[in-house]
Computed example of a mutant assay.
Amino acid sequence: MRPSFSVVLATILVAATTAGVCSAGVELSPELNESSYLLSCPSAEQIVKEVTQAAVQRNPAVAPKLLRLHFHDCFVRGCDGSILLNSTPGNKAEKDAPPSLTLGGYEIIDEIKTKLEERCPQVVSCADIVALAARDAVSFLHGSYSLWPVPTGRKDGRISRAEEAVANIPSPFSDFATLRRRFQSKGLDVVDLVALSGAHTIGVSHCESFAKRLYNFTGKGDADPSLDKRYADFLRRKCPPKFNNGVTVEMDPNSSLSFDSHYYQVVEQHMGLFRSDAALLEDSTSAWLVDFMRNDDVFLAKFAHSVVKMGRIAGDGVEIRKHCWVVN
């Protein structure tokens, strides 16, 4: 018998209290709050919500893109909007690093910023827009008003380096030990790792991100033995040896537009698309958490806690950009 939502939420809150707000030397932003724009730009969050939800209504595939932008932003230099900056002569930016090449949704952030600049010039940061749009996109896809609170008050950074994205963004080819180190370096624990991996319940991936599991797992032309054989056969049909990387595959089979706990069922069935998904079963604690989060209420509560925690990773922000792709 699975625990009730109230029991799970109570457990989460106790764990959050006893664990503290900072680990691994990572600074979390204490100044963030949910009323940052109450006086300076009262319509800010409504504008973000309206533009974001209209975009998701036109194309539901936008939701996972905006969620990934938030993740990539916070994992490099903290949540400071650095993922949005364009490369310049002499500097290759994060968005042009290999881990970021399949990101999208930049045009939606720009549309939101344009409307906010018309209403409240240089008040709302690009970093806050990314955090709010991620929440609003997923909430609309799920059919909810607001799946998690978004404290605001972030500032925008002026530095964006491709090599830092490579060094910090967890790879889909990562084993459990590597994933745990990457998350710990951001002040996130194993519970956060498993919960945030649940973001793979929505969206698609290109063949390039998992083909090694099908054809050359150990460098000897073999397949990953942890992958369900029938699922591996399906993936080989979608992505033959000389695949077209324009082909995409659902990260959560038959459920890629439903923000729910189905992903964890798939992982337990050895049908997680990435090596990093399968890696969650390598550790006894994370494997237990995978099973625990198969309940929708449990997953939604823990994801909300972890994504807010991630969103509080302090960035190098020093300004409010007028345009999100370039420093002032």
Score class of each variant (00 low, 15 high):
158 R>W: 00
158 R>K: 09
159 I>C: 07
161 R>P: 04
161 R>S: 13
161 R>E: 15
161 R>C: 11
163 E>W: 15
167 A>T: 13
167 A>I: 10
168 N>D: 14
170 P>K: 01
171 S>T: 15
173 F>E: 07
174 S>K: 05
174 S>D: 15
175 D>H: 03
176 F>L: 12
177 A>M: 07
179 L>N: 08
180 R>Y: 02
182 R>W: 10
182 R>T: 10
183 F>G: 00
183 F>H: 09
185 S>V: 02
186 K>P: 02
188 L>S: 12
190 V>E: 15
190 V>S: 15
191 V>L: 15
192 D>I: 04
194 V>R: 00
196 L>P: 00
196 L>N: 04
197 S>D: 11
199 A>C: 12
199 A>W: 14
202 I>K: 04
203 G>H: 06
203 G>W: 01
205 S>R: 08
205 S>G: 15
207 C>V: 10
208 E>P: 00
209 S>C: 04
209 S>M: 07
209 S>F: 01
212 K>H: 11
213 R>L: 08
214 L>W: 05
214 L>V: 05
215 Y>D: 15
215 Y>A: 13
218 T>M: 13
221 G>L: 14
222 D>Q: 09
222 D>V: 11
223 A>E: 13
226 S>K: 12
228 D>L: 04
230 R>L: 08
230 R>G: 14
231 Y>L: 09
232 A>M: 08
235 L>A: 00
236 R>Y: 08
239 C>H: 04
240 P>G: 04
240 P>T: 10
244 N>I: 00
245 N>R: 02
246 G>H: 11
247 V>H: 12
248 T>P: 02
252 D>E: 10
253 P>I: 11
253 P>M: 04
255 S>P: 05
260 D>Y: 03
260 D>H: 09
260 D>E: 13
261 S>K: 12
263 Y>L: 09
265 Q>Y: 08
265 Q>H: 14
267 V>S: 09
268 E>Q: 14
271 M>S: 14
272 G>V: 03
274 F>A: 05
274 F>G: 02
274 F>E: 06
276 S>N: 07
277 D>N: 14
278 A>F: 09
278 A>H: 09
279 A>I: 05
